[in-house]
Design a binder for these strands. Structure first.
Length: 593
DNA sequence: ATAGGGTTAG
């Protein structure tokens, strides 16, 4: 910047201080390069009597890109029109983006009209930015209308559309757009893999990734991060390790996001030690790496370690963000650290000035709910500055179910269901709550409501990976080719733990939280089939890792503890909300989940 | 003439 100022002084001496082209270069440097200075650019701009369209464009770019002042970019555009300067094809991408990041919906639509008025309706870049803007406004129909009207769509148009569909959960529409363009770039491939991941279609993500490798598309750091998140989401450790190895052997740069994706993958696939090893080995730990590691310790029930790591982070002067606190609070919730959570909740607001979001309140509700402090949980909900959403109420409903608060749970459950009628979990929770109180009539009514509304039940499954192959089991499943053997093993295993006191809890069958089919005998729940298969196929002493998409049921939890003791096996099971490490007859969750 | 668009973690 200092060299630039010297140069600027020089140009003034030469009498060029009002020369548009020369000043254009100076403003371009100030408002478009990394170490520029927007204020300086503004001063220079103000000294120019008749700025041309290039000057306006480049300064608008500076406003939204360098200074995050999108509003000023929009104002500058208005001034430009007022000065009767005709916009060109470079003008609109800037203004549209400014409307987009400023969430200026009304202005955005007006700018769209002007794009057409000035004759840039067929400009590819302007159209792509319009699509991006409407996607950001969550107005997929308008985005699609722009997309459909384009005389020639680029691969960028498709990528933007796919990303938009994915964010709103429309994976089929995304796939249709993906297949519609023959020349696929690696960015496009990545956006489609990410679309599968974001919508929870991990299988689709892996299948597309394989197809991508077949077509010899280069596996870059973006795709690596996306596939790692798919591995994290589905517990696919084998593939996750493969990607990690690939990154190392191809010397792909470990940027903060990629490092965080690797750590998160190891955490979510049950390898906490490996995650710590990578975390500790990072030459410089970005905020994202700290966040992932704290979050990992949280879901593994290591609240103390998570809190300690957070303190270390403060010592290293890394500024935490709202995710850091979400993870710290989650850690406290899963370890029953009530006082610490209260302190950090305050600390976040008072010391760091971070306003709690709805997720933070949800976390506090969960914390008190798990600890059976229902009144405190209620107080959190009543004190929230925003309307509680279904997930906050769902957390309280879960607590009511566990602690037998039938009346409150009934009221909260109804509210949560009304707010999000398509979420099957809340119906199941409410039905379980009624069942535990013996209110069978109400159980039947909830079931009927669910049927009438055609709410899709998520089938519970347990998955186990052995030698890189993933086997999936649902309750009472006989589809596995070795199913005879597996069932015999399960029977034998249950017999041997019965000798040390296992008794199937018949009463719990009707109101467990696992979402397994109620008709299936407890002894063939998917968790037990997966454990049986694991014992059958692995060597003595090897750790058994299981992934369950819903929450583990109470009876399976009890059985797993005993199995870990009788068979001297460590069993690491990830369920919907956390990890359970079964070892020597005990579980790391200390029976509160 | 100069300049513009899409992808990844928590």
């Amino acid at each position: 910047m200092s060299e630039l100022q010297q140069l600027h002084a020089h140009t003034i001496k030469l009498g060029l201080s009002t020369d548009t082209d020369t000043m254009g270069q100076i403003i371009k440097f100030c408002s478009a390069s990394k170490n520029g200075d927007l204020e300086y650019a503004l001063k220079v701009f103000d000294g120019i009597p008749n700025p041309d369209v290039f000057l306006y464009n480049i300064l608008m770019k500076g406003f939204w890109r360098m200074a995050s002042r999108p509003r000023d970019a929009i104002v500058l555009y208005l001034r430009m029109l007022h000065d009767a300067i005709t916009p060109n094809s470079f003008t609109f991408p800037c203004v549209i983006r400014a409307c987009c990041v400023d969430s200026a919906v009304r202005e955005g639509r007006q700018v769209h009209a002007q794009v057409l008025k000035f004759g840039f309706g067929e400009d590819v870049v302007s159209s792509n930015n319009l699509i991006h803007m409407y996607v950001n406004f969550l107005s997929l129909e308008e985005a699609r209308r722009v997309f459909d009207k384009m005389p020639s769509r680029s691969v960028v148009s498709c990528t933007t559309m796919i990303t938009g569909y994915a964010r709103s959960g429309f994976v089929d529409e995304a796939l249709e757009v993906f297949e519609s363009i023959p020349e696929k770039s690696s960015v496009l491939w990545n956006s489609m893999v990410a679309a599968f991941v974001q919508t929870g279609h991990f299988h689709g993500a892996f299948a597309l990734f394989e197809r991508m490798l077949d077509e010899k598309v280069v596996l870059d750091k973006f795709i690596a991060a996306t596939v790692l998140s798919a591995c994290a989401g589905s517990g696919a450790l084998g593939l996750g390790k493969w990607i990690h190895f690939y990154i190392q052997s191809n010397e792909i740069e470990l940027d903060p996001k990629l490092a965080s994706a690797i750590i998160d993958m190891y955490c979510k696939c049950g390898c906490l030690e490996k995650a710590l090893e990578i975390f500790n080995g990072l030459p410089s730990k970005g905020l994202s790496a700290w966040n992932s590691m704290i979050g990992g310790l949280a879901v593994h029930g290591k609240g103390d370690a998570a809190v300690k790591l957070f303190m270390e982070m403060e010592k290293e002067k890394v500024a935490p963000d709202h995710i850091t606190f979400l993870n710290v609070l989650t850690a406290c919730a899963h370890s029953g650290l009530i006082e610490e959570a209260n302190n950090y909740f305050e600390h976040m607001m008072d010391f760091y000035g971070i306003k709690p979001r709805i997720e933070h309140f949800g976390c506090m509700v969960d914390l008190f709910g798990r600890a059976g402090m229902i009144n405190e949980a209620m107080e959190i909900i009543e004190g929230m500055p925003m309307t509680p959403d279904a997930s906050v109420l769902g957390a309280l409903l879960g607590a009511c179910r566990v602690h037998g608060k039938v009346e409150l749970g009934e009221r909260i459950g109804m509210e949560a269901i009304d707010l999000d009628p398509s979420n099957s979990g809340r119906y199941v929770l409410l039905a379980n709550l009624y069942a535990s109180a013996g209110k069978w009539q109400d159980v039947a009514e909830v079931r009927k409501l669910m049927n009438d509304r055609e709410v899709e039940k998520i089938p519970g499954f347990s998955a186990i990976e052995l030698d890189g192959n993933i086997s999936k089991f649902v309750a009472g499943d006989r589809n596995h080719p070795e199913s005879e053997l597996i069932y015999a093993k399960v029977d034998a295993v249950l017999e041997s733990i019965r000798k040390v006191g296992y008794e199937p809890d018949i009463n719990e069958v009707l109101h467990d939280l696992s979402g397994e089919d109620i008709e299936t005998p407890l002894c063939y729940h998917s968790e037990k089939l997966a454990i049986g298969f694991g014992l059958l196929k692995s060597k003595p002493g090897e750790t058994i890792r299981i992934y369950k998409n819903l929450r583990i049921c109470r009876d399976c939890h009890c059985a797993a503890k005993l199995i870990s003791e009788v068979f001297s096996r460590e069993i690491i099971m990830r369920d919907r909300s956390r990890f359970h490490h079964f070892r020597s007859g005990e579980c790391s969750c200390k029976d509160s989940w």
